[in-house]
Design a protein around this nucleic acid. Structure first.
Length: 779
DNA sequence: TATGGTGCA
């Protein structure tokens, strides 16, 4: 259905909005249509600040076909556009112009008098580049390095480069950086920028961080998983090492909380330098944020005011609808540019290119533009008020990727994007009252909404005895912690007393999720480690396959050529082997709708993991074409995530009984081949409960490899696997170990009857009988 | 029967 061009856009705003509505009405109709039959209850319960909040968002779904799209052929030009200011002034003059320079001595005094200081540094204050240098100038580098953590790699690299220029040394000498795959430091290094994940790994080797005299945790308010773990660890390190200085930077709104956590430490405030941004709230709540955003962007566009527009949307799908703005041909030229992480980098680069004269840029972004990417020249921000978040449900072991209202902190960050190069305006598509009363002040930190298996393993290896007593700034839900411990126990990383086993100790060495580490370890005994190594590497990077708008069928057909009918894992192996046979060619990738960037990373990950395997004296052997061995090996690490065929194309989770669906990207999807049992890599709730990356397994493997869950029973002539134990962590562990029970606070009366049953079952199981006890699942 | 917010090791 073509969109009718607006006849006279400048004279009649009513027409514009009508056209806008037309576009969106269609979108909404389709959305409604799709909603029918979709599972209800996409809402989510969230506990924040002791309050229980129910968040329920409708499902966004549309299918709009686009004409064939041409791929961009040019990459982002790397002309180092220096500002007029930078050209005229010397580096020293630039440094002295920064707001932080005015408070330099005060800041150094307060650091000298306190081991921990919270620094509230607004954008443009210069804290990231100057703090390290001030500490260096004040003598802190005479007895150790000054370390500075960043949540992102690009930031660590680019800031280190800038500071090395300011100091007048080569990058890697006095000033260096370390990120995964790249250590650009030397024995001379005094100032080290790094990602927070690197510092966390370093603390494994050297728990007191003796190489450092000072550590700055920059952008700590972003509260990444690693930041939160480091908070707890560094707090202890500082109490042991009185010579270590810790500086934590934070946003204004949570500085008090940070200060309290570290023991009522002082807060130092550095003003920033940004341009004012007018905030405009919607007078009434918007029914449809896509429609509202389109209308608002058009209104700005036709207002005659200059400057580029940035629209924040929750996800790719909404972005693709908003992109149709461009089709309003009679309106003044508007270049609508999408940006999200999965977009190929050549298309991403477009947002940084200067638009032709007289053409206004309108960037439609996910929250990638909130912190990760900065585009200059944005004058207007249109904020939908929503973002997607991944929340983990420990009970069913499922991630849900859902649309949530943003927090006040997000909203402020978004509006700030309009004031980087001049005064700007921010249009919020929600009411002021919604902002004040309904939005959380800050987003729920990641540690409270993710699978913690990795964190638990790390803390265990650091010798943290009782994880429930570990000092987190915002402790994760107890259920979540215990579930992760249970998962580690299943994988053999923890013993019955909750202590790390030799397998667990080996697992810590790998920068992988525990189940993937386990798979790698098991593969050495099963003589398929070279093959599993590739599969594990492929699973460690985001999306391999690219499915561009307008070429869906074409790309699906190409993908099918790689498909191994019984396994997505093997399909991945196949893709890698073919890429290798084609000399790791990027042209080959483009021809086969495969993300080159992702494949390069797979190769890097593979080589890093291989190094660790060599270092750990693990043998690297391939099983050749005996793919059954590979499937069994995968089963050995993922038997706890199994599903059983129920009807045509219908699966139910073996342990929970929950219906699960094959993801449409699976090679088992719609192929007519429906094995009785499959294991899955990941369970994600988007529009449905989807199993992503699945492999067919023999039912008997499940019983053999996962005896705590399954056993084989005789049913007529056919042998069937059924659920032997749907126990929750404490229940299994409780009867196994009194020591474990003591550390499980939920070992309370409510669990008692179940525990008794459990003991009886355990006896039966131990007697060698093949009788299966079917346990009904309750949530 | 129909599809992935953003980072990090």
């Amino acid at each position: 259905e073509p969109i009718i061009p607006v006849k006279d856009p400048t004279s009649d705003m009513a027409i514009i909005s009508r056209k806008g509505s037309q576009l969106v009405r269609k979108h909404r109709e389709q959305k409604e249509r799709k909603k029918v039959g979709a599972p209800g209850g996409t809402g989510c319960l969230v506990i924040c600040d002791g309050k229980l909040r129910i968040l329920q968002i409708g499902i966004q779904k549309t299918t709009i076909r686009r004409p064939e799209q041409k791929f961009a052929e040019h990459m982002k030009e790397k002309n180092e556009a220096r500002s007029e200011f930078a050209k005229k002034k010397s580096l020293l003059e630039q440094r002295q112009y920064l707001p932080i320079f005015a408070v330099r001595q005060q800041l150094l005094n307060i650091i000298r008098d306190n081991n921990i200081v919270i620094v509230v540094g607004e954008t443009g204050s210069g804290k990231t580049t100057q703090l390290t240098q001030y500490l260096h100038e004040d003598g802190y580098t005479s007895y150790g390095m000054v370390g500075c953590t960043q949540p992102r790699r690009v930031a660590a690299m680019s800031v280190a480069k800038r500071v090395s220029e300011e100091i007048g040394s080569n990058l890697g000498d006095e000033v260096g950086y370390a990120i995964r795959f790249e250590d650009c430091t030397s024995e001379k290094t005094l100032i080290k920028y790094m990602t927070d994940g690197i510092l966390l790994r370093e603390s494994l080797r050297e728990s007191d961080l003796d190489h450092y005299s000072a550590v700055i945790m920059d952008e700590a308010h972003e509260r990444s998983l690693n930041t939160d773990v480091l908070f707890g660890l560094l707090r202890e390190v500082v109490s042991r090492r009185t010579d270590l200085k810790l500086i934590v930077t934070s946003a204004t709104m949570d500085s008090d909380k940070f200060a309290a956590f570290f023991g009522n430490v002082p807060i130092f405030h550095i003003p920033g330098r940004t341009f004012p941004v007018d905030i405009l709230f919607s007078k009434t709540p918007q029914e449809d944020y896509v429609e509202a955003a389109v209308k608002q962007a058009l209104q700005i566009h036709l207002s005659g005011l200059m400057g580029d527009i940035l629209i924040f949307m929750p996800g790719q799908e909404d972005i693709e609808i908003v992109e149709r703005l461009e089709e309003l041909e009679n309106a003044p030229a508007l270049a609508v540019l999408p940006i999200y992480s999965q977009l190929p980098s050549d298309l991403q680069a477009k947002i940084f290119q200067k638009a032709p004269d007289g053409v206004r840029k309108c960037i439609v972004a996910t929250n990638i533009a909130e912190t990760s990417l900065t585009v200059d020249g944005i004058m207007f921000v249109v904020d939908s008020g929503y973002c997607k978040l991944k929340v983990f449900n420990p009970r069913i072991g499922m991630d849900a990727l859902q649309v949530f209202p943003i927090s006040q902190a997000n909203a402020n960050q978004r509006s700030g994007r309009a004031g980087r190069t001049g005064p700007g305006q921010c249009y919020r598509l929600y009411t002021q009252s919604a902002y004040k009363n309904e939005m959380l002040t800050t987003t729920i930190p990641e540690i409270q909404r993710t699978n913690l298996a990795n964190v638990v393993l790390l803390l265990k290896s650091l010798g943290v005895q009782d994880l429930l007593l570990f000092h987190f700034m915002d402790p994760p839900p107890e259920d979540n912690m215990l579930n992760s411990m249970y998962q580690l126990w299943i994988l053999g990383a923890l013993d019955n007393t909750g202590a790390l086993t030799p397998t667990g100790r080996l697992m810590v060495e790998f920068p992988l999720d525990p189940a993937l580490s386990k798979m790698l370890i098991v593969s050495c005994d099963m003589c398929c480690s070279a093959d599993i190594l590739i599969i594990v590497s492929m699973l460690s990077v985001p999306a391999i396959f690219y499915r561009p708008k307008g070429r869906e069928e074409e790309s699906d057909q190409v993908r099918e050529k790689f498909s191994v009918p019984e396994s997505d894992h093997l399909t991945y192996l196949n893709v890698y082997m073919q890429w290798k046979n084609n000399n790791y060619s990027s042209i080959w990738c483009n021809d086969h709708f495969i993300h080159t960037k992702a494949m390069r990373k797979v190769r890097e990950v593979r080589s890093q993991l291989k190094d660790i395997m060599v270092q750990q004296k693990m043998n690297l052997v391939s099983c050749g074409s005996d793919w059954d061995i590979i499937r069994k090996c995968i089963c050995a690490a993922y038997f706890h995530q199994a599903a059983k065929l129920k009807g045509i194309g219908e699966y139910v989770n073996v342990r929970t009984g929950m219906p699960c669906h094959l993801h449409p990207t699976s090679s088992l999807f719609g192929m007519g081949y429906t094995p009785d049992y499959i294991i899955y890599h990941e369970l994600v709730m988007t529009t449905k409960e989807y199993m992503q990356c699945v492999t067919a397994v023999d039912g008997e493997w499940l019983a053999e490899l996962g005896p705590m869950f399954y056993s084989v029973k005789q049913a007529g002539k056919s042998r069937q696997v059924s659920q032997a134990d749907a126990a929750r962590p404490h229940r299994v562990c409780a009867w196994r170990s009194a020591a474990w029970r003591r550390r499980c606070p939920w070992q309370s009366s409510s669990c008692e009857p179940v525990e008794k049953n459990r003991r009886r079952r355990a006896t039966w199981a131990a007697s060698g009988s093949s009788v299966t006890i079917s346990t009904s699942f309750t949530t």
